[in-house]
């Protein structure tokens, strides 16, 4: 997955995402819509995924654009963005670290593991979730807890961008982080 965080610093005007849709994204969107011959509305989630994979998050222009593309009202798209934990309305870090929080991983030390990730990249482990993903000051990493990643037999696990890391120890953290240096 590529992530292009949009900087909100400085006074440069923020360009609406819908103003800059590249041709290959448009082509992927057209292809995705064909998978739902019965109802275009079914393409809502796939389009949101394609959009977020490209832009890093979903802005207001995206909600309107996707709704128009599928002959829906913007609220039909916005209610999905606000329901599903996967979708974001703010830019994340370049690398997203998702540590599994649920029982088997917690028994194997995932709470300590998340703290170790947070401290290593400069995130306050107590920072909350409600204003975008907790992200390191340099914008390189976001760290969050997620629920069971269906890999409980190799706990604790974390999903970093598209990669599942299994049997992760606190000692592995520095090595893992350098793997994702851009």
């Amino acid at each position: 997955m590529e992530h292009h965080p949009v900087s909100s610093s400085g006074n440069s005007p923020v360009i609406a995402q819908a103003e800059t849709i590249p041709a290959d994204l448009l082509a992927k969107i057209d292809e995705a819509v064909t998978h739902y011959p019965v109802s275009k509305r079914s393409a809502s989630l796939p389009l949101l995924h394609l959009w977020q994979n490209h832009f890093g998050f979903i802005d207001d222009s995206a909600v309107k654009w996707i709704a128009a593309r599928l002959d829906l009202e913007p609220i039909n798209i916005l209610e999905l963005v606000t329901f599903y934990p996967w979708f974001r309305q703010q830019a994340p870090g370049k690398t997203i670290i998702r540590v599994c929080r649920t029982l088997s991983c917690a028994m194997a030390g995932s709470y300590e593991l998340r703290e170790k990730f947070c401290h290593s990249v400069g995130i306050d482990p107590a920072s909350d979730h409600h204003h975008g993903l907790p992200t390191s000051p340099d914008g390189n990493y976001s760290v969050e807890f997620v629920e069971c990643l269906a890999s409980c037999g190799s706990a604790p696990v974390c999903l970093i961008n598209d990669d599942l890391h299994e049997d992760v120890t606190e000692a592995d953290v520095p090595k893992i982080l350098t793997q994702y240096l851009s």
Partner: peptide, 22 residues
């Protein structure tokens, strides 16, 4: 069809609503 990180979508009628884009 990819989900979006909601456990409830494993329940079959929720999955169907999710597939319908709702």
């Amino acid at each position: 069809h990819q989900g979006a990180a909601a456990y409830i979508c494993g329940e079959e009628t929720s999955m169907i609503e999710s597939l319908e884009g709702k």
